[in-house]
Design a protein around this nucleic acid. Structure first.
Lengths: 237, 237
DNA sequence: ACAAAAGTGTTTGGAGTACACCCATGA
DNA sequence: TCATGGGTGTACTCCAAACACTTTTGT
């Protein structure tokens, strides 16, 4: 049985996983090492891979993310496909693909997914296959990424900005279970590229049924402790 | 040279083209005839086809739409990909595909596009390959369509509802060049599933810089003639 | 004259925005 | 006591929604 019977080398999935560390938005990238005429070349890429022949796209995205980063049960949303025939033109990318898959690779159409996750949960990037790390979005803009992954990240970011406008409760995927209104506001302003007024923001949030105040305060901060809040899923958010 | 060198039989594009006839939203479908053991079987499908090996997805969508319906210069937006392995499981669909493409067909991932067009422009569905017609959306819900095309249409409709919320000027893709406010309101209410108040609607439209009143009236209607309006593209709509 | 659709204003409530000061805490 | 961020209220503007009658035209 050859790899060709298991893998479909014409379609791939890529996952753009965004995280928030309290002040900045980050993307999850994995290390890639290419053996080019015995010179090792290192760069970064999105977690992604070709799909299995009998696998749905959503399933492929979850599987690949788990295999490459160890992350499980992440809510991934398909946002766009990329099929420029030139996207697999770089010889370095082809070399790497053929080495990793042991398949003859031609043109690949990729289906891209986004996810939002809390950086706070003790993430163990456990994978035997690859090494995953968070990178600052600004930093990523200046990095050399594999394939058209820079473009995919850009479109993914547009997509989540957009989704968060429509479904603001998605923000809570990015926050710790208990959070302060400053954290929420800082995140809100980061993704919306705004600078909200503190009072107006508190009023706005007071109208969101899915944000509930707790009887708990922050601890160990070098200033007045802030009230903690939690996110509560509501019947129709 | 085999077809396999020209066509990529693993990825297709499908176009969901919506039109508005003044009162109802319609979808463009093409006829399909399948020769099943010398019994001819007829049904409908979306205009769509597998892509060429060296073709970008957007280009494939335009090309396929033109080839199958004669429509040119239609603005198509990619909205989602469909890759359930079972979507190409129906033997009738496979038979049809292999007959039309002369290729061995396995699993196909399709990238779906939507477009909005005016039914008023004298559309000549000129194609040597297929016959295209408008179908009422309600009607479509009860029809048997090829592959997962019913699902694709449903998602396409959700997508345009959504887009029209954000970019209301897209509505004008669906209207004749000169239109009355009743027509605009009827269309608006159709896509939003609302029932707007006439006066409030006129006020709302008065604020849209891209709708301008003409010095012309409707003619030949059996009641008071309505003023005509046109759509004017603005620098930043 | 009547049927059919066009056109027109006012009021009310909710949401967003602008704006400045005192409070609690740890160092 | 000071530095740091937390927390609070009011006034204004804009937009959305509710609501009913008169006008024009063809038959």
């Amino acid at each position: 049985m050859t790899n060709e019977m298991i893998y479909n080398p014409h379609v791939s999935v890529d996952c753009v996983v965004f995280g928030f560390d309290g002040s900045k938005l980050k993307v999850l990238l994995i290390e890639r090492t290419i053996n080019e005429q015995n010179e090792l070349y290192n760069d970064k890429k999105l977690p992604g891979s070709i799909i299995l022949t009998d696998e749905d796209l959503d399933d492929a995205a979850s599987r690949v993310l788990t295999e490459l980063t160890g992350l499980k049960n992440i809510y991934l949303s398909q946002f766009r496909s990329f099929g420029n025939p030139k996207r697999t033109d770089n010889p370095r990318d082809i070399l790497w693909l053929e080495n990793t898959t042991q398949l003859k690779i031609g043109r690949i159409v990729t289906v891209a997914y986004v996810a939002l996750i809390k950086i706070d949960r003790k993430i163990q990037f456990k994978s035997e296959i690859s090494q995953a790390n968070w990178y600052d979005l600004n930093e990523v803009a200046t990095m050399n990424l594999a394939f058209d992954h820079a473009e995919i990240i850009k479109k993914g970011l547009e997509y989540i900005r957009h989704s968060l406008d429509i479904e603001p409760y998605l923000l809570f995927e990015l926050l710790p279970r208990k959070f302060t209104l400053s954290q929420l506001r800082s995140l809100y302003d980061t993704v919306h590229q705004t600078n909200s007024d503190v009072r107006n923001f508190q009023k706005k949030v007071a109208l969101w049924a899915y944000v509930v105040a707790l009887d708990e305060m922050e601890e160990g901060v070098p200033h007045r402790a802030a009230r903690l809040y939690k996110f509560k899923r509501t019947p129709n958010p």
